[in-house]
Amino acid sequence: MLSKRIIACLDVRNGQLAKSVKFVDTRDIGDPVAKAREYYQDGLDELVFYDITASSDQRNIMLEVVEQVAEQVFIPFSVGGGIRTVEDASRLLGAGAEKINVNSAAVKRPELIKECAHAIGSQNTVLSMDIMKVEMSREFPSGYEVVINGGRTPMGIDALTWALQGEELGAGELVVNSIDADGTRSGYEINLTRMISEAVSIPVIASGGAGKPEHLYDVLTEGKADAALVASMVHFNEYTVSGLKQYLHERGVKVRLRY
């Protein structure tokens, strides 16, 4: 039986680990390579790095981080942030990433998903969506809107429509990130996650809002997510990956325990 995955998300700025709170205030918390190795040894299933480096001339630092991680960590890991072209994606794969995450650039130019899926394969192309709750309306039948720039720019696109379009264009997985829940540590957006997971036939990774082990349980059961993204709850050593897995296992969720 397929296990539910726990994925740790590491925000990296100028080669250093940062944890964002509502994407606005970010504070640096250390070396991403060391953190990646620590989680790997503690049974993490997968890693995601988001490059939040502001200036594009600093992006080569991320390639170095990716290379170092790839030499030491033998689980799948993906990289997102600032990927605008197939060349950006290929460079990251060449450095050792398993998958790439596209986000804002794909919203502005959906063909990017198709191009990446064609060049590096659907299974390596992850569409990451930042989503905000809005009034249900004719424009937003799902009651959720796609946003970019860390939630600052609403795009006038319905979230469910975008998820289905992303799948159609060749995305192999979806990261559903709730901007409302992100950084609050008060739980994932269950309703949003379930709605998208039920609508698409590709795996859905829930993101934003994890603060307690029961939040993971809720989103992996009621929320129908295939994987749960965690960040600050493990970054500050409040919880461990192995501890979260043990908790989920005890509550009957299938997770990988032997590693």
Partner: peptide, 13 residues
């Protein structure tokens, strides 16, 4: 069963 996603992605026994 629509809940079973394809591709089969993840850790399995």
């Amino acid at each position: 069963d629509k809940a079973l996603k394809v591709p089969h992605i993840g850790w399995n026994e």
